[in-house]
Design a protein around this nucleic acid. Structure first.
Lengths: 340, 340
DNA sequence: CCGCAGATCCGAAACGTTTCGGAAAAAAAT
DNA sequence: ATTTTTTTCCGAAACGTTTCGGATCTGCGG
């Protein structure tokens, strides 16, 4: 590996000059610059970013802590789409992404903060954390690097977040069912350590209240955000609330599980029961019946999240909260009881 | 940011001792070690990985060049699943992942080799490259870091690859159609700069030859690996080869496109035409009819690819080629003409 | 001929670690 | 009491860059 010193020696100049020549400073004669560049070429010189970072204190790297990058997350490609958004925006602005090996199986020995500090990333984007994550608070309190949280509404001096408006989205979903004349609407939620679950439950209540339908706690089940959990919750609903005509699911994956249960037990969707999901995952528009759902723009979350982080890095913003809107996509899984 | 020097000063020892104490060397008195650790704690010391890398020449980082991480790739989550596999294995072995910002829009100014060398990654995994990628050859010829290619069958001193056996997989798929009594089988391929396309075409020919069915070039169309491309290719097939009773698609996404065309034109799958795909993407088991396809274990590709790379890093293997088997998954999109 | 401005270059320090080769002190062996 | 070993420590160099503060040289106006 040729270094700047090798070039200096061979070109008969100092390392200072080589550095300045290669970095385009203007206090170096064009002839020497040519010469230096040529020598660099001959030696197949490649700058050492590690050494550079050490002195410049810049790594041009964004740390990524995405705890839901795993096999299970392949169906709803939530993490993936967020990642794509981040990757695209970061790429535009010439930042590389450092994906930390957060090992979910054995508990981590190092905090997220420690990881980021050690590696000198300039900022970090964190996604997929539970509210009870032991290291979350430390991230929020820390003050050494800017940080963007995805779907976790916490802010700090150095911490911003980007989230989709789960509450309004859920309200829209339930409103849609109410508009279609459904009165007894059950809900399959995720789990109570997810921010989005809390919000979606709140949205569910909002819509009911708006329509003067009393909220009944017993109509809400947790499906843990998994397909199997959704399927299981649906069984409970069928058993205990046979009068329910609609179910609002806090994720499409759980909605898919619920539909599986309904199919197995001979119910028709939306004939007997209407289903509305949340996310608009890819499968939603291919399954049968096609799923009515609330679309979240996950790519946009990543893209805007990366932008937000970089704005913070450059001190270009004081904004610490970004909320994205969602959209109701009506497909085939909901039935209008008021028509025929 | 407290450094090792600060600790040394405050603890009244040399930096050498601090370094050795913190790194668990045994030539330091346990009392001093305690003291040093305590001071480190007080100062909230966090080691600087950049400085460490500079001298140790190790970054414990694997470079990732995955050119198909983008929005379009969300449906077939190929890149995603591979990434998950890599992430899991790399995480187990305590490597972090550096995702390079390969900007596909504007042509890149730096080669993959240059990126990896500059950042001092210990090795790299490359996926999603076309055979005519201008920088591919350079990677293969380079000798400065080990590299694993995914689905690109090229090797070198420092370059290994992992691929799924596309040829055998394709042959199995076509064989399945032949077994079901189909005689005129069209094919929708990807594009000719993809290795897998070439292999799948070869597999298609293999199966035909095996069954003494003459290969007819005009039955093969390119769909560019996109859903729309598949839909378009299907129109061509319907128009020009109305006798075809089955289509083998080189990807599930194109198969989905083809089914869309068939539905629009009033054909029934598998009643009128049988379809078999390739990949087994998530949607394949949810769409209607459910898609018969060849399953590739993409997660496994990533996982084993990471393992292979790390083996190379540790000089633990001479193996430069890994091929994974595929599996025929029979669902609902193929009809057996021999029964009823 | 002097002084000065601009152009071009360089030495040395700094970034935060690791590690080599040895030194001082304490303990053990002779 | 002297030598040898062991334990514990440290100085200094090295990794490959950037950058600060000059130094040297050239040409020009006065």
């Amino acid at each position: 590996m040729a270094t700047i010193k090798d070039i200096a020696r061979k070109a008969g100049v100092s390392v200072t000059t080589v550095s300045r020549a290669l970095n385009g400073y203007d206090d170096v004669n064009e002839t020497t610059r040519k010469k230096i560049k040529q020598v660099a070429e001959e030696l197949a010189y490649s700058p050492n970013a590690v050494a550079r970072s050490l002195v410049s204190k810049k790594t041009r790297t964004i740390g990524l802590i995405i705890s839901d990058i795993n096999r299970a997350g392949a169906k709803d490609a939530f993490a993936y789409e967020v990642l794509c958004g981040i990757n695209d925006r970061a790429g535009d602005l010439n930042y590389d992404l450092l994906l930390f090996s957060t090992n979910p199986s054995k508990q981590m020995e190092k905090s997220y903060t420690a990881l980021c500090k050690e590696r000198n990333v300039e900022g970090a984007i964190i996604s997929g954390l539970r509210l009870d994550d032991p290291y979350l608070q430390e991230v929020i309190d820390q003050n050494s690097f800017p940080c963007v949280l995805i779907d976790i509404p916490r802010t700090g001096d150095n911490v911003a977040y980007i989230a989709s408006d789960s509450r309004a989205g859920a309200a829209t979903a339930v409103q849609h069912l109410l508009d279609y004349g459904h009165a007894e609407i059950a809900m399959i939620n995720g789990h109570d350590q997810a921010y989005v679950s809390r919000e979606r439950l709140a949205g569910y209540k909002d819509a009911l209240e708006q329509a003067n339908v009393p909220f009944r706690e017993e109509l809400v089940y947790d499906g843990g955000f998994t397909e199997d959990g959704g399927a299981e919750a649906m069984y409970q609903i069928l058993l205990r609330h046979p009068q329910a005509t609609a179910v609002f699911c806090a994720s499409d994956l759980m909605a898919l599980g619920a539909m599986r249960t309904l199919e197995k037990t001979g119910r028709r969707v939306p004939g007997d029961i209407s289903i509305v999901g949340f996310d608009d995952i890819n499968i939603a528009s291919y399954c049968s019946p096609k799923l009515t759902t609330i679309r979240q723009d996950k790519y946009e979350m990543g893209y805007r999240g990366a932008q937000l982080l970089i704005d913070m890095l450059d001190d270009r913003t004081d904004n610490r909260k970004v909320t994205l809107g969602n959209q109701l996509i009506i497909r085939e899984s909901t039935r209008n009881l008021r028509e025929g």
